[in-house]
Simulated scan of single mutants.
Amino acid sequence: MKTLSLISLFFFSFAIHAQNFQGNQEDINLILSNIKDFSSSVMNSEYQSIGNAYTDDAKIFPNNREIIKGREAIIGYWTLPEGVQTKYHKITPEEIKIIGNEAYDYGYYEGITLRPDGTESKWKGKYVIVWKKINQDWKMYLDIWNGIKD
């Protein structure tokens, strides 16, 4: 009986944290690939690649800031000061739903920032992204996030 209870608990826990992806699998895979590439670009300070992940008319909604509009302004936002580096960045979607040539996903993000003095800052939060399909690629149109305190 104890083993059955543990197995049931395992499957119940898995179901609670399971991802829910709806839409064409090829499109889902492309969005997942773009999410991974975005994190890689953030960690490598590849600001043009970060900017190219967004539509030309994209908007971002950073925590405690005004809305930032347009690719160039978004690149400016993501550009770090000299000596600061994003050591780790990961986005974990909980749900992706494709509706025609638009999609949304939401989930969690986490990361570590390395400061010039060698100290690190860990952070995490939740996000929502609205995607648009442009020329057979998925780009972020609206990107909103806010932090979660430990």
Results as ranks from 00 to 15, higher is better:
residue 1 M to V: 07
residue 1 M to I: 08
residue 3 T to G: 03
residue 5 S to T: 10
residue 6 L to W: 07
residue 7 I to A: 13
residue 9 L to E: 06
residue 11 F to T: 04
residue 12 F to Y: 05
residue 13 S to H: 02
residue 15 A to Y: 04
residue 18 A to E: 04
residue 18 A to L: 03
residue 19 Q to K: 11
residue 21 F to Y: 14
residue 22 Q to Y: 13
residue 22 Q to I: 15
residue 22 Q to A: 10
residue 23 G to Y: 09
residue 25 Q to D: 14
residue 27 D to A: 13
residue 28 I to T: 06
residue 28 I to H: 01
residue 34 N to A: 12
residue 34 N to Y: 02
residue 35 I to N: 00
residue 36 K to H: 09
residue 36 K to W: 03
residue 40 S to T: 13
residue 41 S to L: 04
residue 44 N to P: 07
residue 45 S to R: 06
residue 47 Y to P: 01
residue 49 S to Q: 12
residue 49 S to M: 09
residue 50 I to A: 02
residue 50 I to G: 00
residue 51 G to L: 06
residue 51 G to D: 05
residue 53 A to N: 01
residue 56 D to A: 15
residue 60 I to Q: 00
residue 64 N to G: 07
residue 64 N to L: 14
residue 67 I to F: 02
residue 68 I to T: 06
residue 69 K to W: 06
residue 69 K to M: 11
residue 69 K to S: 15
residue 70 G to Q: 04
residue 71 R to S: 10
residue 75 I to R: 05
residue 78 W to S: 01
residue 79 T to M: 08
residue 79 T to D: 08
residue 80 L to P: 00
residue 81 P to G: 12
residue 85 Q to R: 12
residue 86 T to N: 14
residue 86 T to H: 12
residue 87 K to P: 02
residue 87 K to D: 13
residue 87 K to Y: 08
residue 92 T to H: 13
residue 92 T to P: 07
residue 93 P to F: 07
residue 93 P to Y: 05
residue 94 E to N: 13
residue 94 E to V: 12
residue 94 E to W: 08
residue 95 E to W: 03
residue 95 E to C: 09
residue 96 I to Q: 00
residue 97 K to W: 04
residue 98 I to K: 00
residue 101 N to E: 15
residue 103 A to N: 04
residue 104 Y to L: 12
residue 105 D to Y: 00
residue 106 Y to N: 14
residue 107 G to Q: 02
residue 107 G to L: 03
residue 108 Y to L: 15
residue 109 Y to Q: 04
residue 115 R to G: 09
residue 115 R to P: 02
residue 116 P to L: 10
residue 116 P to V: 08
residue 116 P to Q: 07
residue 117 D to S: 06
residue 119 T to V: 11
residue 125 G to C: 12
residue 127 Y to N: 03
residue 127 Y to S: 03
residue 129 I to S: 00
residue 129 I to T: 03
residue 130 V to P: 01
residue 130 V to L: 11
residue 131 W to I: 03
residue 136 Q to W: 05
residue 138 W to V: 02
residue 138 W to G: 01
residue 141 Y to N: 11
residue 142 L to Q: 12
residue 143 D to Q: 02
residue 148 I to K: 09
residue 150 D to F: 07
